[in-house]
Structure formats: structure tokens, C-alpha cells
Write a protein that binds this DNA or RNA. Structure first.
Length: 888
RNA sequence: GGACGAUUAGCUCAGAUGGUUAGAGCGCCUCGUUUACACCGAGGAGGCCGUGGGUUCAAUUCCUACAUCGUCCACCA
């Protein structure tokens, strides 16, 4: 066999690229080359606004662990990669760059086509960097199915859904108030707002001296557009005014006609108990306006702020053209002059700002495209909201199999709460980078369709909210709609949809729960009548040592590729998934990666030792050891347990951190620290066989987490095939031998005690007493103890064993020179007896309680069968324990 | 205002459907020139599991109240 001298330390850079190339070339990233049940994961497409950050690195690690695990378990795994054009984000970013380069207004100066060209260049550049980075992370995705939210195939899907929704009456064009970013000159959805707390002034005033009700506002300038005052109908002070209209002159173009209306949402106790209603510049007020309108009462809507952020003509001659702030001052001056201002208070206020452009948004009435989330879908008697709710509660159409399982489940509550507050979704944007709305106009005519219907038609200028296309991601990537195939820039297999949808597993950060998860559920249940994924794992955010978010703007961005270059991709991956719990934020810092790097190196050196010392052929290995010792039994028992733990308990339940922990404990504390040491003096054919077996299985278990180093070692062993597609070890959890484990732990204790004694450390016998009683009854065990104690770096060559009968039940003494080590013997009979008695009485109590519970008829009748079964099992265990205790 | 999360070793964090001795990594202390590894080895110290109450034979775990920190949603006009 081949004996290669491996370097002392594992140097990732020497192997990673070649290994990835090998994987890719093998074709096993592509499910078409795999057999078995389909298993699909759609990569959340990173925005083409920049490069990958640590969050992406975490996501890639999580997805790849699942993909590799499932692949090794014989699944036909599709991990589909892609990128997102990130409409507003990308355009905002490029515009910012252009402005920094000296352009004043890129949109005006370049025009639509040229600006789009610039953005496209930027996006393509960013995209290619991102794709390289994904490779670098070792992600085993199918590059042949690479998708982009803004490519032709995805564009087809977008149009198809838009048209379908329009025809179903779910998409409408309406004049409603929207969030408007003056800086970005575009709308944004409610979810795109970032609320910032700011100090503000709250003014209480009356519109006129003879106006009966005072109102309060932080935005006096908008009051030029008030059309009503809302009060609670139960409010005795104001009840008499309800329905009356007051004409007041405040300086606007026309005198305001303020109608007093009733609204149950107005709190009587707060402020003056009355609200000045500005339908044009407040979401809530607009809703009141609509409510009144539905009752047949049009209170009117006056827009006093324009899209340029300046006051309109309607605000009056004095005000038109002023900025919002100038107008505010002017209005306050006027109120003061007229002695209408009653109060001025300092308060803090939450202001909605544009996520991408950063300015405080203005609420304005505009004609935009909306998705109606409350309207019943034709032939369904359900609204989109209903669909979104159903998917996580009773399952789509009440089908339990079509239910999205959210891990951790508390996010289901957050999600449902969000749906309750959801307003119609404004989907049109006035930016250019994005899917253009497939609607055409010719004079008064309107046509909704993919291509212009003939001469003289003009397409809608607006583009779609980027989440519209992201919402289709799970199926637009799988060849939906079928016609996408013809025009796709890449061949798309339409059969994919049938095979891989609903997708098996999805992961994402909680910050895009509403943006993305909700929209995917909406789109998929509506368009396909299927949930988008069965399982969704929500991860937390990564923060730096100070607990701050990593962000480019704050300059504390850690580049995952630099970390990977320094410590290796495996170390980065392992450190990212260590110590995390689903949905919880975690801190990330370099020391963590260092620890993971050390782990990787440890595995490398274990392998180096096993490969280097072995005389047997180590490929295609089958365990056949016949003569085995206690240590052999122990390690085989342990790895059997490890296989069970990592597969069933951890990975099947998305306990990634736990899996890594279990693997590390076995590898370092059990295998390296004990078994490898034992193998140095119990050197025989059986040991070698077992070592190869253990290493092979261990590499498989580690592979999803640290794919590069495991694959490298696998090949250094001389294996022909790729570890990536090796069969996952059989889960024979039952092979775990508790007795052997206890016996071996005893030996460990003895050896540790000897080492302590020799190094002058104190011995604590209490812990060992229990063990010795156990040992005393077994000749074999004593022999193996002697053997191991002699062998394992204790410096002991002579061992005096004394097994006594009654007084000391099985004590072991080890004599080293003139030191007589008092290890396990000399059981203090009294103490031991007391201890046993306490334990027995404790157990008896427990058993009694359990028995009475099982005897309770109510409990038997009402408790689920499973619980009763468990209770019985527990009871049995306790009873057995009690018996064994009593026998002592 | 509503909801959710966190509170466990010096630091960063796991964990237990309630059960005998609560874990890891890092850090710290002592020891170690062993041929897989100093990216190492051996050992050790260090915890009223946030506070009060309740349920229970048994609570750090379940319930409840509170405190502190954090997040999301709604926004009071």
C-alpha cells in the first residue's frame, strides 16, 4: 500500500480549490446524476449589491451541511444556487457611486437605458464575485441550474403571475396613499420602512378660534390638508358635533371643510381625545377616509405635499413651493399669531425611513399597483391572507402534508401576527432596475400582457417590487411556467417542478421572514396550489464581539473569505455553526475560528497517525476484527452511539451545533486522547482494523461540516471514490453498550488517579468508590485494568492488585516505588451504606409517585398513550436500579 | 401599547419532554523535552442556572409575577 508522508499541519490552501474542482467535475452536484428520493433546497439568492458577508457564509454552511448529509443518505439532492437583482438596493447603490463620482442626478443625466447599462455592469460584476465566493465556501450546489431573479426565465414567471393575479382581480391599480422616498423618488412597501426614533415637537392647536375641538400633531404642515376631525362616538364632550362640518381658513388654497366624524379607534383619554384627519398624508387617516367613503361619506382628500417633498398649490399661495420644514415653521408662526396654539411639548417619535435611501418617507396619495390581500380569490372563497395563514396553521387547503413547519416554532406566531396587520401590498416602484410592469397603455385603453399588443402602445414606466420576483423563487427556478423553457437563457427542465417542488428545506434569517418567507408562501400557494417548502429553519443574526451587527457602513465588516484564507474554509464553516441555536443571534469572533481550525488539524493528525502506522490496506474497508479488548468494545460502542446521535438526534432535527459538539467530543476526547494512546501499546491487527474502520466512519460523519479536510484525508487513505457520495454510516444506536462504557470510564478514573498521584496532585477517592464495587466482581475487568494501567503512560510496570472479600469489596491498589496509591479501596463502609440507603429511599419515593400516577384512573384515561408508555418504561428502569442497589 | 427572545463558569454560548454529579470552547492556575498533533498532552480551580411566589415526592427546567437587556410589530394623532 501507499505510505505517504503527510505534512504535520493541515494547510487548507493546498487542497481546497482542487477538491472543489474535483467535486464539480464528478457531476454529483447535479441531481440528474444521483438516484433516490428527491431532496431540494433553494439557496436564498444573495443580492448583487456587493460581496458575500458572514451571514451568507453561515447560510451556505447550513445549506451545505443539509445537502451533503442528505446526499450521503442516498437522496437525489438539488441545492440550487442563484442571485437576486435586488431592485431598489442595487439601483440605490449604483446611483450613490455615480453621485460620489460627481454626477448630480444620474437618472436625469444618463436616462433610463444608460443608467440601466451601468447598473447591469455593476450587477454582473458583483454576481461573478458572489458566485466565486459560494464556490469557495465549498457549497455543493448544482451550477447547471444557476438562476438569477432578473434573467429571462424568471422574467417569464414574473409576468405570468402578474397577469394571472390581474385577471383574478387581485392586482389592481389604485389611488391610495403610499410611502414615498423623496430622495429615491420611488415608493416603498410598509415592510421596507426602518423606524427611527427621533425627538419631535407635539403641537396642540385649534383650526380657528370658534372651532370647538383642539387637535394635536407633530406635522403641522400637513394640517393644511385636513378634511376631518375624528372623535370617539362615546365621547360626551364631542358627541354633539359628530356630522357637523366647519369651514376654517388656515391659509390653504381653499378654506378647509372639516367634518367631525366618529371612529372607535380614537382614544378619549389620549391628548385632546380628537384626531385631525389628513387622509392624503397618513396611512391611518387614509383608512378612516376609506371607511367613511364606504359609508357613502366622502370627506375629501387634499394633497398638500408633492413628490418633490415640497408643498403643493393646494397648500395655498403662501406655502406652495416651500419645503416641509419651512412650511411647518410658517404654519406655527401663523398659529401663534392667531393665538390658536395651545400647547407645545417635546416628545420622541418613531419616523419611518426608507430602508435603501435613508430619508424619512412622506406618505402621499398616488396611483400605484397593489396586490389585494383581502379579496377573495375567484372560485376559492379564500383571500391571499387566508392562504398565507393556512400554510402554517392547518396546512394548505387543510392538508396536513402541505404545512410549513417553522423551526423554531415561535416564529409562526410572529408571522401570523404580521398577517393580521397586513395592508394591501404596493408592488410598483418608480425605479428602473427591475421587472417592468407588463401593462400597456394606449390613450384610455389598458392591456395587460407580456408583449405590446400593437403599434402605439406604451408600457408602464414602473417596475415591480423586488420581492415580487423573490417570492416566486422556489418554483421560478424549476422551470415554471413551462413556456419559460423556450426563452430561457439557460436550459430549464420543466420536469424539475414535479420532482423538486415543494422544496424540502429552506433556511433564512428572521429579518426576512415577512419580506420573503411570507411572499413565497403567498406566491406559491396562489400560483401553484402548493406550499413552497415543507420545513423552514430560521437562523439568528451574527454579531461582532460587541454585539453589534456586522455592516459595511459601520466599518466592522469581517470578510468571510479573508477568514477562510487565514484558517481554512472548514474551520470557518465549523465555527459558524458552533454554539448557535435556531433563531438566536450569536457573536462571532476570530478566536472561535481558531478553535475550529485546531479541531480540523486534530482530525488531520489523527488520520496522519492512523494512515502512517497502518500495515493493512485501508481502502474498501470492512470491519472484521475478532479478538477484541475492552477498549475496542468501548470505542466501537461509542462510535455507534455517535452515528445515532449525529444523524437522528441532531441533523434530523436541525441541531447543527449539537452535532458538531458530539463529533468533537468523540474525535478529541475519546478517540485521540484514549483510544489512539491505547493503540500504541495494544498494537495488533485487530486494532489496526478498528482504527481504519473508526476513521472511515468518522470522516463520513464529519464530512457535511468540514468537507474539504475530510475529502482530502479520504483520498490520502487511498480510497477511489469521493467521500462526498459515500453512504452515510448505518444508524445502529442500539449497538451502544452501556456496561462497556461504564467499565471503561472506571479505568479512565483509575488511570487519572494514578497520574495525579504521581504528579503530586491530590486524589479524590469519593468519586471512585462506586466504581470499585462494580469492578470487584469481574476478573476480566480487573485484568484489563491492569493491562491498561501498565500501558497508558502511568509509568507503572508493576501493579499489585488486591481483591478482597467482604470488608472492602474489590479494592485496587497500585504500588509505584514507595508510593502506595490509595485508589479505590478502603471503602468507608458506613458512608457507603448511608449513601446507598439515601439513594434507595430516593428511588423508592420516585417509584411510589410513579406507581400512584399509573394507578390513577384519570391519568390513564386522559394522558396520551405515548406518555403512559414512557412513564411505564421509566418506572421499569427505576425498579431495576432499585433492585441492583438493594442487592449491594 | 402589543408580541417575542435573553438572563447558566471570568468571557462566548450550548442543554435538560422535570430525576441522582448542569456542559463545551476560550481564558486562568499547576505539571509535562512521550516519535499523530505545541494548531499538543495531563490535571485543576471556577456555577444559590436573574429575583420572588406557585405546581410537584422532586424545579435551573413547567406556571406566575417582577427586574434588567434586546428584537419585532403597531403607532399617540
Amino acid at each position: 500500500m501507499l505510505k505517504k508522508e503527510l505534512p504535520k499541519a493541515y494547510n487548507p490552501a493546498d487542497y481546497e480549490d482542487a477538491i472543489y474542482a474535483q467535486w464539480e467535475k464528478s457531476g454529483f452536484f447535479n441531481p440528474d446524476n444521483l438516484k433516490g428520493d428527491p431532496y431540494s433546497i433553494m439557496m436564498p439568492p444573495p443580492n448583487v449589491t456587493g460581496v458575500l458577508h458572514l451571514g451568507h457564509a453561515l447560510e451556505n454552511s447550513l445549506m451545505d451541511i443539509m445537502a451533503r448529509y442528505q446526499r450521503m443518505n442516498g437522496k437525489k439532492v438539488l441545492l440550487l444556487p442563484g442571485t437576486d437583482h435586488a431592485a431598489v438596493a442595487t439601483q440605490a447603490k449604483v446611483e450613490k457611486v455615480l453621485v460620489e463620482q460627481g454626477m448630480k442626478n444620474p437618472r436625469q443625466e444618463l436616462g433610463r437605458e444608460k443608467l440601466l447599462e451601468k447598473i447591469r455592469e455593476y450587477a454582473e460584476d458583483s454576481k461573478s464575485t458572489i458566485l466565486k465566493q459560494i464556490r469557495k465556501m465549498g457549497t455543493s450546489c448544482d451550477w447547471s441550474r444557476l438562476a438569477y431573479t432578473f434573467d429571462e426565465a424568471r422574467g417569464r414567471a414574473v409576468n405570468e403571475v402578474f397577469i394571472k393575479m390581474y385577471n383574478d382581480g387581485l392586482i389592481y391599480r389604485g389611488n391610495r396613499v403610499v410611502n414615498w422616498s423623496v430622495k429615491g423618488q420611488s415608493t416603498c412597501s410598509d415592510d421596507e420602512l426602518v423606524h427611527v426614533e427621533r425627538p419631535a415637537k407635539l403641537y396642540t392647536f385649534k383650526y380657528a378660534k370658534d372651532f370647538p375641538i383642539a387637535v394635536a400633531t407633530t406635522r403641522p404642515e400637513t394640517k393644511l390638508g385636513d378634511t376631518a376631525v375624528a372623535v370617539n362616538s362615546k365621547d360626551k364632550r364631542y358627541k354633539k358635533y359628530i356630522g357637523q362640518v366647519f369651514k376654517v381658513e388656515v391659509g390653504a388654497a381653499k378654506p378647509l371643510e372639516i367634518k367631525i366624524i366618529a371612529d372607535e379607534n380614537v382614544e378619549m383619554e389620549f391628548g385632546t381625545g380628537a384626531v385631525g384627519v389628513t387622509p392624503a398624508h397618513s396611512m391611518v387617516d387614509f383608512e378612516m377616509f376609506e371607511k367613511q367613503k364606504a359609508k357613502g361619506d366622502n370627506i375629501g382628500l387634499v394633497q398638500v405635499i408633492g413628490q418633490n417633498g415640497k408643498m403643493t398649490e393646494a397648500a395655498g399661495k403662501e406655502y406652495a413651493g416651500l419645503t416641509v420644514l419651512e412650511a411647518r415653521e410658517k404654519f406655527i408662526d401663523w398659529l401663534n399669531k392667531e393665538k390658536l396654539l395651545e400647547k407645545e411639548e417635546d416628545i420622541t417619535q418613531n419616523v419611518g425611513t426608507s430602508d435603501r435611501f435613508g430619508d424619512a418617507v412622506e406618505v402621499l396619495p398616488m396611483t400605484q399597483w397593489f396586490i389585494d390581500v383581502n379579496k377573495k380569490i375567484p372560485n376559492k372563497d379564500k383571500s391571499l391572507k387566508d392562504l398565507m395563514r393556512e400554510a402554517v396553521t392547518i396546512g394548505h387547503n387543510g392538508d396536513d402534508k402541505q404545512k410549513v413547519k417553522i423551526t423554531p416554532d415561535r416564529f409562526a406566531k410572529v408571522y401570523l401576527n404580521w398577517i393580521d396587520n397586513l395592508r394591501d401590498w404596493c408592488i410598483s416602484r418608480q425605479i428602473w432596475w427591475g421587472h417592468r410592469i407588463p401593462v400597456w397603455y394606449k390613450k384610455e385603453e389598458i392591456y395587460v400582457g407580456e408583449k405590446e399588443p400593437g403599434d402605439g402602445w406604451k408600457q408602464d414606466e414602473d417596475t415591480l417590487d423586488t420581492w415580487f420576483s423573490s417570492g416566486l423563487w422556489t418554483f421560478s427556478t424549476l422551470g415554471w411556467p413551462a413556456s419559460a423553457k423556450a426563452t430561457a437563457d439557460k436550459p430549464v427542465k420543466t420536469s424539475d417542478l414535479k420532482t423538486f417542488h415543494p422544496t424540502s428545506w429552506m433556511q433564512m434569517g428572521y429579518e426576512i421572514l415577512f419580506f420573503w418567507m411570507a411572499r413565497m408562501i403567498l406566491m406559491s400557494t396562489y400560483a401553484l396550489d402548493q406550499i413552497p417548502f415543507k420545513d423552514v429553519y430560521i437562523h439568528g443574526m451574527l454579531r461582532n464581539e460587541m454585539g453589534k451587527k456586522f455592516s459595511k457602513s459601520s466599518g466592522n465588516n469581517l470578510n468571510p473569505l479573508e477568514v477562510a484564507a487565514k484558517f481554512g474554509t472548514d474551520a470557518l464553516r465549523l465555527s459558524l455553526i458552533s454554539g448557535i441555536a435556531p433563531g438566536n443571534d450569536s457573536k462571532f469572533y476570530e478566536e472561535k475560528v481558531e478553535g475550529a481550525r485546531n479541531m480540523v488539524n486534530k482530525l488531520w493528525n489523527i488520520s496522519r497517525f492512523i494512515i502512517g502506522n497502518n500495515q493493512l490496506p485501508i481502502t474498501n474497508f470492512q470491519l472484521n476484527a475478532k479478538k477484541i479488548t475492552l477498549a475496542d468494545k468501548w470505542i466501537l460502542s461509542k462510535i455507534s452511539w455517535l452515528i445515532y446521535e449525529t444523524s437522528i438526534n441532531c441533523l434530523e432535527n436541525y441541531q447543527f451545533s449539537q452535532a458538531g459538539e458530539e463529533l468533537r467530543i468523540f474525535t478529541w476526547n475519546d478517540l485521540a486522547d484514549w483510544y489512539l494512546e491505547i493503540s500504541k501499546f495494544e498494537d495488533n491487527k485487530e486494532k489496526e482494523e478498528i482504527l481504519i474502520y473508526i476513521l472511515s466512519e468518522l470522516l463520513k460523519l464529519w464530512h457535511p461540516f468540514i468537507p474539504f479536510v475530510t475529502e482530502t484525508i479520504w483520498q490520502e487513505m487511498g480510497n477511489k471514490g469521493l467521500l462526498m457520495v459515500e453512504k452515510w454510516p448505518d444508524r445502529k444506536g442500539s449497538d451502544f453498550n452501556f456496561k462497556v462504557s461504564v467499565e471503561f470510564d472506571l479505568i479512565k478514573d483509575i488511570i487519572i488517579a494514578i497520574r495525579n498521584a504521581r504528579s503530586g496532585n491530590k486524589v479524590e477517592p469519593a468519586k471512585k468508590i462506586k466504581a470499585v464495587i462494580y469492578a470487584g466482581k469481574q476478573k476480566d475487568l480487573i485484568d484489563s485494568q491492569v493491562h491498561l494501567i501498565k500501558g497508558l503512560r502511568t509509568g507503572i510496570s508493576e501493579l499489585k492488585i488486591k481483591v478482597s472479600g467482604e470488608k472492602i469489596s474489590g479494592a485496587i491498589y497500585a504500588a509505584v516505588g514507595d508510593i502506595e496509591i490509595y485508589l479505590l479501596g478502603a471503602v468507608d463502609a458506613e458512608k457507603e451504606k448511608a449513601r446507598l440507603e439515601k439513594e434507595i429511599s430516593n428511588l423508592e419515593k420516585i417509584i411510589k409517585a410513579a406507581e400512584s400516577r399509573l394507578a390513577n384512573k384519570e391519568f390513564i384515561d386522559k394522558a396520551p398513550a405515548e406518555i403512559i408508555k414512557k412513564e411505564k418504561e421509566k418506572l421499569k428502569g427505576w425498579q431495576a436500579e432499585l433492585k441492583s442497589l438493594k442487592s449491594k
